[in-house]
Amino acid sequence: QVNIAPGSLDKALNQYAAHSGFTLSVDASLTRGKQSNGLHGDYDVESGLQQLLDGSGLQVKPLGNNSWTLEP
Score class of each variant (00 low, 15 high):
residue 58 L to Q: 00
residue 31 T to Q: 01
residue 27 D to R: 07
residue 6 P to V: 05
residue 13 L to F: 01
residue 52 L to P: 00
residue 7 G to H: 04
residue 21 G to M: 06
residue 18 A to N: 09
residue 11 K to P: 02
residue 4 I to K: 04
residue 39 L to K: 02
residue 63 L to E: 06
residue 44 D to Y: 04
residue 71 E to D: 05
residue 40 H to F: 13
residue 2 V to Q: 05
residue 5 A to M: 11
residue 56 S to E: 01
residue 19 H to D: 09
residue 23 T to M: 09
residue 43 Y to F: 11
residue 67 S to Q: 12
residue 52 L to V: 02
residue 26 V to P: 02
residue 56 S to C: 08
residue 42 D to C: 15
residue 23 T to L: 11
residue 33 G to W: 07
residue 35 Q to L: 14
residue 10 D to F: 14
residue 45 V to G: 04
residue 17 A to K: 08
residue 11 K to T: 12
residue 59 Q to W: 10
residue 61 K to I: 13
residue 56 S to P: 01
residue 48 G to H: 03
residue 41 G to T: 02
residue 15 Q to A: 13
residue 9 L to S: 03
residue 42 D to G: 07
residue 3 N to I: 12
residue 51 Q to D: 04
residue 60 V to M: 11
residue 58 L to M: 04
residue 54 D to Y: 14
residue 65 N to C: 10
residue 6 P to H: 06
residue 44 D to L: 06
residue 31 T to K: 00
residue 20 S to N: 11
residue 39 L to F: 02
residue 20 S to Q: 13
residue 60 V to H: 09
residue 72 P to H: 08
residue 72 P to K: 10
residue 34 K to D: 03
residue 27 D to L: 08
residue 43 Y to C: 07
residue 39 L to D: 03
residue 39 L to V: 06
residue 7 G to E: 02
residue 21 G to T: 03
residue 53 L to P: 02
residue 63 L to P: 01
residue 35 Q to P: 05
residue 3 N to D: 11
residue 71 E to R: 03
residue 6 P to D: 03
residue 13 L to V: 03
residue 66 N to Q: 06
residue 41 G to V: 03
residue 13 L to W: 02
residue 44 D to I: 05
residue 57 G to E: 04
residue 50 Q to F: 09
residue 32 R to Q: 12
residue 68 W to E: 01
residue 60 V to S: 10
residue 28 A to H: 09
residue 39 L to S: 02
residue 27 D to A: 08
residue 19 H to S: 11
residue 41 G to H: 03
residue 47 S to A: 12
residue 25 S to P: 02
residue 63 L to Y: 07
residue 46 E to L: 15
residue 7 G to R: 02
residue 68 W to G: 00
residue 48 G to N: 04
residue 29 S to N: 13
residue 32 R to M: 12
residue 55 G to P: 01
residue 50 Q to M: 13
residue 19 H to V: 14
residue 30 L to T: 04
residue 43 Y to K: 01
residue 56 S to Y: 05
residue 31 T to C: 09
residue 20 S to E: 11
residue 44 D to F: 05
residue 65 N to E: 09
residue 36 S to L: 04
residue 26 V to Q: 03
residue 42 D to N: 14
residue 57 G to F: 05
residue 12 A to Y: 03
residue 64 G to R: 04
residue 42 D to P: 08
residue 18 A to P: 00
residue 19 H to P: 04
residue 17 A to E: 01
residue 11 K to D: 15
residue 67 S to G: 08
residue 66 N to E: 05
residue 36 S to W: 05
residue 28 A to C: 14
residue 61 K to W: 07
residue 1 Q to H: 14
residue 29 S to Q: 10
residue 35 Q to N: 11
residue 31 T to V: 13
